[in-house]
Simulated assay, not measured.
Amino acid sequence: MNPWVVYCDGSAVPNPGRIGLGAVFTEPDGTRHTLSQAAHENGCNNEAELRALLATLRELKLRGAGTLLIHCDNSVVVEQVGGAAAKPIARLASLFDEARALLNSFDQANLVWIPRHRNSEADALARAALGIAEKRVVKTSRKRR
């Protein structure tokens, strides 16, 4: 069965500060959806990333998704939720437990780490939820002499 393909990201501005959540998910038939919302809580970047994952998983559950391939650019979230032997963040332990339980409630779900530059659309949605413009990368070239 083809999976729902998911990219999620959270943003804390400043860090710690207000939390924005963003996600892009594509159904097996190619239909795309986005999520962009501000969280009611303040927190750090890791909490923002975790809350973005939770909000996305809840939305996917409501939509009846069964098999998921989730991309996240936060290695701490991927390690903690994935069950790797990572040093736990005590303050966020209950949120990590909730994410693991929700992830395990799907038929199949794989959470994988990706580099930040491959998650730009979800990042832009998380920042937009806070009223912050998309990060712009300015490339400069130097001529060699």
Rank of each mutant, 00 (worst) to 15 (best):
P115I: 02
C8Q: 12
L130G: 07
W4V: 11
L53E: 05
P3A: 11
P16R: 07
E134A: 14
P88N: 06
E59Q: 13
Q108T: 10
N42W: 06
S94C: 04
A93M: 11
A128E: 10
F106G: 00
I19S: 05
V5I: 15
R116N: 09
T26L: 00
E121I: 06
R118F: 10
I132G: 04
I114D: 02
E59M: 08
K61A: 14
S94G: 00
L60R: 09
V81P: 00
D107P: 01
L92T: 03
R144N: 10
R136S: 08
W113Q: 05
S105E: 07
C44K: 09
R127A: 07
A86I: 02
A90Y: 04
L95N: 04
S94P: 00
P3Q: 06
R18S: 14
A39I: 05
D29C: 12
G22I: 12
N42P: 01
K143Y: 12
Q80W: 00
S120L: 14
A65K: 11
R127I: 06
E27P: 09
S120G: 14
Q37A: 13
G66K: 15
A55W: 08
D29M: 01
L68A: 02
N45M: 08
E41Y: 11
L50M: 12
A86H: 10
G43T: 11
E121Q: 14
H117Y: 13
R142K: 12
T31W: 01
D9G: 12
L57Y: 03
L102K: 05
G17S: 11
D97F: 09
P16K: 04
V24K: 01
W113V: 01
A85Q: 13
C72D: 04
L111D: 06
E41V: 14
V112G: 00
